[in-house]
Design a protein around this nucleic acid. Structure first.
Lengths: 97, 97
DNA sequence: CTTACATTTGCCAAAATATGACAAGTCAAA
DNA sequence: TTTGACTTGTCATATTTTGGCAAATGTAAG
């Protein structure tokens, strides 16, 4: 649980008065799956972000960032060295651009 | 490939004139596997880090950090939003301590 | 209380991914 | 050309993730 991405897309969906039942088919899944995604129990496929962004009239880049942040969070939560590791990665990434 | 963790443990191993053949059995694997780990083609199991740290007389925390950084790197490399996402995670992690 | 409808939960088979083991390959030094 | 260290490829097995369904929960209305 505790998924920023999930929380965000739920907020977006609700603010537009859409039901899971309405959105799920557009992503070719059932309501159960989408429900789990919103609660962070499952991951949305990366390729589906653009579709969702469109459906929810959201900024695609924002959703991509939140999605990626969730993936990272899963990895670092409960890791004592999380902070150091994140710094290391940030550095390496810059050198590589 | 391009594994900071792998590069580091190879350096450590070589600086102590140890062969794969000598180290691998201590981790209960064959030389092929350890070779791949050093080249970043496979992941060492997290639980094995302490053993390796001991064998290589290395700082366990350092290896844990590098190991985690590698996992993160795999996720963010090729991601345009990597930088933003990393920042987001860093923030969230601090709030959670 | 019963119905209707949105969402959630649990389960399990199937799909996807990672791992372990082994054989064969490269390469350098003698 | 033999030896030893390391690398590479393959493949069966193990582990993880996913998709789909059925049943459960929650809630508002009649």
């Amino acid at each position: 649980m505790e998924s920023k991405f999930g929380e965000r897309i739920r907020t977006l969906r609700e603010s537009q008065n859409l039901y899971l039942r309405q959105v799920a088919p557009l992503l070719e899944m059932d309501t159960a799956q989408l429900s789990k995604i919103e609660k962070g129990l499952r991951q949305l496929k990366k390729e589906q972000i653009p579709i969702l962004a469109k459906v929810l009239k959201a900024d695609q880049k924002e959703l991509e960032t939140l999605w990626l942040a969730d993936q990272l969070m899963q990895l670092v939560k409960d890791e004592p060295t999380a902070d150091e590791a994140l710094k290391t990665v940030s550095k390496n990434i810059k050198n590589r651009k």
